[in-house]
């Protein structure tokens, strides 16, 4: 069952599809219903979406729009109530818990709103904790260099500012050279100036490593740096917008 709107917007995708036609994620008819006590919450009401290799996508929506749920499903943290999610050829909805763990371990990089660093590990070690379990990681030092923290390697989270902590989190996410980078409100806890530094780091990773990046945010300002902006409203994709002219992070305002 195709959503009429989706038909529309997928035409807009055409130029990008022509350039990078390999689909990393293929989402088909995904719904998600939560049982909250005695109330059913329809977080996703039928999502069809493709994310393409190397693109920088922003999933934009108000709180409660279902964007986090979608990201969690893409990241293998949650399963849809109905529908299928394909990662390449693999159907994530059929994966076992341990297959999902492996999926996250080898293919996905996560960046969280509240950084979620390990307080007992230094910046370098927070990255190493992931590289130690991945297949072809870059060195933690290099990853931190990439996000501009080459001089803060041996600082503990408590000794770093919020922006620095988030950049450590990005370094941690990319050090394993993931196929996709999923960022949940990465600037949500930061002031705009610091946020820009973080976004620059994300863009740099996207450009230099070619990592498919999906950022969810409720901040429309950020959307202008994306290849595509996927608008979510009440559990549905309301609009997909392709940015002809992407802005550099430092040009963004919010």
């Amino acid at each position: 069952m195709h959503h009429p709107l989706h038909q529309n917007v997928s035409n807009l995708d055409a130029p990008l599809q022509a350039k990078d036609h390999i689909s990393v994620f293929h989402v088909k008819g995904v719904t998600k219903v939560y049982q909250m006590g005695e109330v059913q919450v329809h977080a996703l009401r039928g999502i069809d979406l493709d994310l393409y290799q190397g693109e920088f996508a922003v999933l934009l929506g108000a709180s409660g729009s279902g964007k986090s749920t979608l990201l969690n499903i893409l990241g293998g943290l949650d399963a849809p109530t109905t529908g299928d999610v394909f990662y390449g050829q693999r159907n994530l909805t059929r994966a076992t818990e341990s297959e999902l763990t492996d999926y996250r371990r080898y293919h996905v990089g996560f960046v969280f709103q509240f950084y979620n660093l390990i307080p007992s590990l230094t910046a370098r070690e927070n990255v190493a904790v992931v590289t130690e379990i991945s297949r072809a990681p870059i060195k933690p030092e290099e990853a931190l260099q990439l996000v501009g923290l080459g001089d803060r390697l041996d600082h503990f989270p408590a000794q770093l500012s919020g922006g620095e902590q988030q950049r450590v989190a990005i370094a941690r996410a990319i050090a394993k050279q993931p196929d996709v980078l999923l960022c949940d409100e990465p600037t949500g806890a930061l002031d705009s100036q610091t946020g820009i530094v973080v976004l620059e780091a994300l863009q740099r990773v996207n450009q230099e490593l070619g990592t498919t990046t999906a950022v969810i945010t409720h901040n429309a300002g950020i959307a202008q740096m994306a290849n595509r902006v996927i608008h979510l409203t009440d559990g549905l994709i309301s609009q997909i917008q392709v940015n002809k002219h992407r802005l550099a992070p430092h040009e963004l305002t919010w």
């Binding site: 763990t101 969280f112 379990i133 991945s134």
Partner: peptide
């Protein structure tokens, strides 16, 4: 809890 759940998200197995 938070630390361990984060690690699970990052791909750590339950045993790890």
């Amino acid at each position: 809890n938070r630390e361990l759940a984060s690690l699970r998200v990052l791909g750590f197995r339950r045993s790890e």
